[in-house]
Write a protein that binds this DNA or RNA. Structure first.
Lengths: 210, 210
DNA sequence: ATTTTAAGTGTACACGTGTACGCTATTATT
DNA sequence: AATAATAGCGTACACGTGTACACTTAAAAT
C-alpha cells in the first residue's frame, strides 16, 4: 500500500476541481457547466468523471466547501492585520476587497448558489456564510461588550453589506470607483456599529436604573 | 385597422410571459428554462415563440421590466400606508414581506439575475434596484433633512438589508420565524438610520462652529 | 375582389447532453 | 507469481435543445 494509486487519484480529482473553478466567470455559472466540459478541461474522458464524483452536484458541493475554506482564511488574515493595530472596519473591508480581486470566481460561486436552484447548494452556502457571521458575532460581542442578540444583528447586517459590496465590486474595473465603493461600505458598517452600540448602551442604562 | 390582429398578438405575448413566470420557482431559474418549455406551457408550437421574442433573453428582459414595475407598486403602497401614520421602517418592512409572499417568483428572478450570467440581465436588474434606491434616498433626504451622500449611503444599505432579508424569507415556511426575521430586519434598519442621523448631526455641529 | 402580410403549425436537422457498458493497463492484494 | 481491484478510455444511445424552412389561414391593405 505505497499509495501511489490513491495519490494519483487525488491528483486528478484536483484537476477536475480546478478545471471547474477555472471555467467560472462573470459569463459562466457553475450550473451552466456541463460534466463533459469540465472533464474536457481537465484532460479526461467524460466517463472518467464518475470515478471521482457521482454527479456535477457533488463536485459543486465540494467547490462550496473550498469557498468556505477561503472565507475562513480571509477571517484569519483580517485578524492578523487587526492585531497590528488600525481601524477594525477599514482593515476588514480592505482585506475582503482584496480577496474578491484575487478570488473572484470563488466568491461568485457563493453569491450565485446562495439564491440558486439547488436546495443542497443553497443550504451549503448559507451554512458557510452563517459560520462566517457567527465568528464575527463572537468577535463583536467580546470586543465591544455587546449582548448576544445585538451582536448577532450587527454581525448579520455587516456581513450582508460587505457581501453585497463584494458583489458590486466584481462588476467594477475602475480602481477609483472601487476605492469609492470601499469608502462607502466602511461608512455603512460604521452606521451599523453606531446603531448597535447605542441600543446596547440604552439597555444598560435601563438596567442600572432598576 | 380594427386591430383585432394586434390585440390577439398581445394576448399570446402575455401568454408567453405568464407561462415563463409560472414556471419559475425555488427549483427553477429563468436561465434553466428552455424556449420549448415556455412555448409548450403557453400552448404554442416552439417556433411560434419567435413571432414575439427573438430570444429567451428578450423575454427575460421583459420579465425584469415587469419586476421593476412590481417594485414601484410596492413603493407606492408603502407610501400610502405611511401617510396614514405609524413607524416608517416597520410599515416598509411589512409591506415588502407581503410582496415577497405574494410575488415570490418575481422577486426570485431579480435576486438571481442580479448576480446572473448575462451582462444585459445584470444591468437591467441593477437599474431597477438603483431606481428603487434613489426613490428611497429622496424620501430620506427630505424627511430627515440629510445631506445627499449620507442619504444615499443609508438608502443603499437599507435596500441591501431588506433585499437580503427578502431572500431569506423565501426559504422560510414557518410564520413565527418569518415574524422574527422581520423584527430583526427592522432593528437593523434602525441601526443604520441611527448611524446616518448621527453622522449628519456631527457634520452640522462642525459647520456651526465655524 | 384581389393581393399582401403575418401569426401560428409541423417537419427536419445538427448538436450537446448524461450515462450505460465493455475494455485496457496498472497498482494492490493474496 | 497469480489474482483482484480500479483509474481511465472509447463507443453508443436516447433525449432535449435552438432554429431554419415551407406551409396554412385569417386579417389587413389595395
Amino acid at each position: 500500500m505505497s499509495g501511489v494509486r490513491a495519490q494519483q487519484k487525488e491528483k486528478t480529482r484536483r484537476l477536475l476541481i480546478d478545471a471547474a473553478l477555472s471555467q467560472l466567470s462573470a459569463e459562466r455559472s457553475f450550473s451552466s457547466l456541463s460534466l463533459r466540459e469540465v472533464a474536457k478541461e481537465a484532460g479526461l474522458a467524460p466517463t472518467s468523471f464518475y470515478r471521482h464524483f457521482s454527479d456535477m452536484d457533488e463536485l459543486g458541493l465540494t467547490l462550496v466547501d473550498e469557498a468556505g475554506l477561503t472565507l475562513r482564511q480571509l477571517m484569519r488574515q483580517a485578524r492578523q492585520r487587526i492585531a497590528k493595530g488600525g481601524s477594525v472596519i477599514q482593515i476588514s473591508v480592505a482585506t475582503f476587497m482584496e480577496l474578491i480581486e484575487s478570488n473572484g470566481n470563488v466568491f461568485r460561486l457563493l453569491l450565485r448558489e446562495r439564491s440558486g436552484t439547488s436546495a443542497a447548494f443553497r443550504a451549503a452556502v448559507i451554512r458557510e456564510i452563517r459560520y462566517f457571521t457567527m465568528e464575527l458575532c463572537d468577535y463583536l460581542q467580546k470586543a465591544n461588550d455587546l449582548e448576544a442578540d445585538v451582536a448577532y444583528m450587527q454581525a448579520n447586517a455587516a456581513v450582508t453589506i460587505v457581501f453585497s459590496a463584494g458583489s458590486d465590486a466584481l462588476d467594477i474595473d475602475d480602481k477609483a470607483e472601487r476605492e469609492q465603493l470601499s469608502k462607502q461600505t466602511i461608512q455603512q458598517l460604521r452606521f451599523i456599529a453606531r446603531g448597535a452600540a447605542e441600543l446596547s448602551d440604552r439597555r444598560k442604562a435601563v438596567r442600572k436604573r432598576k
